[in-house]
Computed example of a mutant assay.
Amino acid sequence: MLDQADPRTLLALLDWQVELGADEAILDAPVDRYALAEAEERRPAAAPPLARPAAPPPPAAAPEVDAVAAATEAAERADSLEALAAAMAAFPHCELRKGARNFVFADGRPEARVMVVGEAPGREEDLEGRPFVGRAGQMLDRMFGAIGLGRDRPDPGAALYITNVLPWRPPGNRAPDPAEIAMLLPFLTRHVQLAQPDVLVLMGNTPCQALLGRAGILRLRGQWTEALGRPALPMTHPSYLLRTPEAKREAWADLLSLKARLAG
């Protein structure tokens, strides 16, 4: 019997079947190959593979925000200095706020006759949250103290109210760019409207650019002009006086002009 044959005999029989043309194993029941061919012809065509669903369209880009219009709307809604400070602190469209430690709004007495407008917070101001507290701020206090004015004076006639064009420190104390100035100008405008000072002192190029549309502080300083419907005096920034001591004589002349204006 085959199941008792030795492996060499079984292998020889397998080779003999291959030579005869056997190319597949024999099943338990016969297969009608003609019937298989007819069944294949009658089989319905296979459905095409399902198409892969189209990828969803990319989300529409968010509409670009008009930051100046948004600032104008937020500033106009503020009916007090406290409300204005809250609106500025919450304003989301200025990138400077992301790198600043503190929001710097103002210092001094809001009822003061004189409102000083500087550029932007520096390192010390950013740390403390008040404008003009570093070396330049100490110089400013000495300058105005020489004509009897100070941020801590209780009398509005002898007091100062101090703010900046920008409430957040620019990286590396760089100068504000025109887009940043334009974005935050509506807040500064409303700040002046709410504080109602008699006189504005514009310390340096940036407030002159913001409120006068001009720069070149060495040409503008000492020349009375008008900003936001109020008398305005451009002056060199205290930091410039620290770098250029010989310019203090001109700054003293400007301070005397301010004193005379307040007296007259």
Rank of each mutant, 00 (worst) to 15 (best):
P63K: 11
E64D: 12
D66G: 03
D66Y: 11
A67M: 07
A69G: 09
E73A: 12
E73H: 11
A74S: 14
A74K: 04
A74Y: 05
E76T: 09
E76A: 14
D79K: 15
L81R: 13
L81Y: 13
L81C: 09
E82I: 11
A83Y: 10
A85P: 12
M88E: 14
A89C: 09
A90F: 08
P92K: 05
E95Y: 11
E95D: 15
N102M: 05
N102S: 15
V104G: 00
V104M: 01
V104N: 00
F105Y: 09
A106H: 08
D107T: 13
R109N: 15
P110G: 06
E111T: 06
R113L: 05
V116L: 15
G118N: 07
P121A: 00
D126L: 02
D126S: 03
L127F: 05
R130L: 10
P131V: 03
P131M: 04
P131G: 08
R135K: 13
A136S: 15
M139Q: 11
M143G: 07
I147T: 04
I147D: 04
G148T: 07
G148H: 08
R151L: 03
D152A: 14
D152V: 03
P156G: 01
G157A: 15
A159F: 00
A159T: 02
L160N: 02
Y161I: 02
Y161P: 01
Y161D: 06
T163W: 08
T163E: 07
N164C: 13
L166G: 12
P167G: 06
W168M: 08
W168K: 05
R169C: 08
P170D: 02
P170V: 02
P170R: 01
P171Q: 15
R174S: 14
P176F: 02
P178T: 06
A179K: 12
E180T: 03
